[in-house]
């Protein structure tokens, strides 16, 4: 076990160093990109604030509470794509047959795919979004006790892993279905555009689905809700615990599914 951890630890840093060096040539675009991303997020946030303010809140949430939910969702998505987003290459690798190369090593293929395609330097952007999240939390009158801060940290992490589990399940399915781009597009837009509002507005069936079937609510409405004290019957402590437990379950399920499907890999790519 210890030897395995050392192995993956060393492998990760070796690959990360190489990734950074091989990307160095595009430095200018790096900064333009940074500005572009920032402007995009700022614009969407501003738009939403304008809208919710016009209507004096939404489903009982105040404008700043919605803004906090929005920044939490954005931060979670950014964390996901910068820390474990390397697995986003899986459908493309399946399609082109590049997957073979990753299956022919002594390393776990999932680990290797993630670190050879990591975008971890993008986590640099996330600091700005984290700042916005904290500002919105302050404006939404969340009291910053040490316990709250801990829960916030745990919930941000859980959100990232929930997304990881959901995407991994779809990538696992892509082993058999091959063409999943439209499905992924839906997932992206549902999370980034519609999970920024309380899921209760979508009706009881949808809210149930986003809790148990496609657990995007566990990475948006529920964590923000328990922090704001807006989920009936759940205190912050219990809420965090329940969300963390659900995250563990989903991650396990996703890994199991991935293993089942990767065993049935056909390598039919060109």
């Amino acid at each position: 076990m210890g030897a395995k951890i050392t192995y993956y630890w060393r492998l990760y840093w070796t690959v990360l160093g190489m990734q950074l060096r091989s990307r160095m040539s595009f430095r200018l675009n790096f900064f333009v990109m940074l500005a572009g991303v920032f402007l995009r997020e700022a614009a969407t946030l501003a738009l939403m604030v304008v809208l919710v303010r016009k209507f004096d809140g939404l489903a009982g949430w105040s404008t700043w509470e919605i803004a906090f939910l929005y920044s939490f969702v954005t931060l979670t998505f950014r964390n996901f794509s910068s820390f474990v987003g390397g697995i986003g290459q899986i459908p493309a690798f399946i399609r082109t047959g590049e997957m073979d190369v990753y299956l022919l090593t002594p390393s776990d293929p999932l680990f290797l795919i993630n670190c050879r395609n990591t975008m971890i330097w993008r986590s640099f952007y996330n600091i700005g979004i984290l700042a916005v999240t904290i500002y919105c939390a302050y404006k939404a009158q969340i009291a910053f006790a040490p316990g709250t801060v801990c829960c916030l940290a745990v919930l941000i992490l859980c959100g990232m892993f929930i997304l990881f589990a959901v995407y991994l399940i779809i990538y696992a399915v892509s082993i058999r279905v091959v063409e999943v781009s439209a499905l992924l597009k839906i997932l992206d837009s549902v999370y980034k555009q519609y999970m920024i509002y309380p899921i209760s507005i979508y009706g009881r069936i949808a809210a149930w689905a986003f809790t148990f079937l496609l657990p995007l609510g566990l990475a948006s409405y529920y964590p923000s809700g328990v922090l704001l004290g807006r989920v009936a019957g759940l205190t912050l402590g219990w809420g965090t615990l329940v969300i963390a437990a659900a995250t563990c379950l989903w991650i396990t399920a996703a890994f199991l599914l991935w293993r089942v499907f990767i065993r049935r890999y056909d390598s039919t790519g060109t």
């Binding site: 675009n29 900064f31 333009v32 990109m33 940074l34 500005a35 572009g36 991303v37 402007l39 995009r40 700022a42 614009a43 969407t44």
Partner: peptide, 9 residues
Amino acid sequence: SGFLQARDA
């Protein structure tokens, strides 16, 4: 691409 992102925003 960075500029286009900003423009699309």
